[in-house]
């Protein structure tokens, strides 16, 4: 690991004030410390923000404000999260392990890096790690990588489960930084790779996530489901956060679908959502909507399985949500 200096910020404002080039903020460290050990992350200054007083989950005018330093475990088991946002609790609980959820923060979960094997291997080229060096995943092992929204420069996926649920819930990410405070609605935090895959998010240097705010839950039933290679402690091959509201006449009154494991960002299936509104909440309509969304997919030779997997997951989940 490359030498660095370590300091603990006294407040969010103090952290932003002390930020300078070469600084990285440290939350729970479950991804960053690993990346530093691998030589992928090479901060000169590590500014610990894990103990800032951003660790409360509180109700504010019918909304739920979750501090950036709240640990994943504490978010998932919070009574209001379990009661009002079960999809979010479920998403967090399906991520990582008990130990890691105890350490990992909400902001760190959002800002974790891709688990693409080439990104994590400093002996290989990677446009995300070393811009312009190439993407060996496109010709190599991309079996768990993106089928939607990728570019010729990068086919990485975002690994978070929590972010997928937050995308469906249209959570707001509160940020402070050298340019002042701002609010980024999910799924707008994460970006598609385009020709700048080194940028995972729209955050600017020095920006610090301070909270995630959840609007009142949308009407309807919700589910978070995850397909993975083993029953626990594995990243999603495909995951879904879905909300379905069916009117008395059996037609879809409201629908939100966010997909994980398929893209560089949580993928909001807006096309499928639009097509379902007003349609009967039946398997046929769900299949048509899923297929329409996935027409945009551009699978690579070794991850083409994700397209029918995502289609079936969308259909099965919506069928389970339909009354």
């Amino acid at each position: 690991m490359r030498p660095f200096d370590y300091a603990r910020a006294a407040s969010a404002a103090d952290a932003v004030r002390r930020y300078r080039p070469g600084t990285m903020y440290l939350g729970g460290g479950t991804n960053l410390v690993d990346l530093m050990r691998l030589g992928v992350a090479r901060p000169e200054h590590l500014l610990d923000v894990s103990r800032l007083p951003l660790d409360a989950v509180e109700e504010v005018r019918g909304r739920l404000r979750v501090g950036a330093a709240v640990r994943n475990t504490d978010l998932a088991v919070h009574p209001l999260v379990r009661a009002r946002y079960p999809m979010l609790a479920r998403a967090v609980l399906t991520g990582a392990s008990g130990q890691i959820r105890n350490m990992a923060t909400v902001a760190g979960n959002l800002l974790q890096r891709t688990r693409c094997a080439y990104f994590q291997d400093v002996s290989r080229p990677c446009n995300k790690r070393r811009p312009g060096s190439g993407c060996p995943a496109i010709e190599g092992d991309h079996s768990n990588l993106a089928v939607l929204g990728h570019s010729g420069a990068c086919v990485a996926t975002h690994p978070s489960d929590m972010a997928v649920a937050l995308a469906a819930l249209e959570a707001e990410v509160h940020v402070t930084g050298p340019g002042g405070d701002r609010i980024i609605p999910m799924p707008g935090l994460h970006r598609l790779p385009g020709d700048a895959p080194e940028r995972d998010t729209v955050l600017e240097p020095g920006d610090l996530v301070t909270a995630v705010e959840l609007p009142p839950p949308p009407p309807g039933a919700s589910l978070y489901r995850k397909v993975r290679e083993r029953a626990s402690f594995a990243f999603a091959l495909v995951s879904i956060a879905a909300v379905l509201d069916v009117a008395a006449d059996g037609t879809v009154a409201g629908c939100r679908i966010a997909l994980g494991g398929l893209a560089h960002a949580p993928w909001r299936a807006e096309r499928a959502e639009r097509e379902l509104i007003g349609r009967p909440a039946t398997g046929g309509a769900f299949l048509a909507a899923a297929e329409s969304e996935l027409e945009q997919a551009r699978p690579l030779p070794r991850n083409a399985y994700k397209v029918p997997m995502a289609r079936d997951l969308i259909v099965n989940t919506l069928e389970e949500l339909a009354p």
Partner: peptide
């Protein structure tokens, strides 16, 4: 790398992977 759990200890009574925790923190 936090994947096997053999390093698990309790920090403030909560289980954690000690390999992923920096001692200074």
């Amino acid at each position: 790398h936090g994947q096997c759990g053999a390093c698990t200890v309790l920090v403030e009574g909560r289980r954690a992977n000690s390999c992923l925790a920096l001692a200074v923190a």
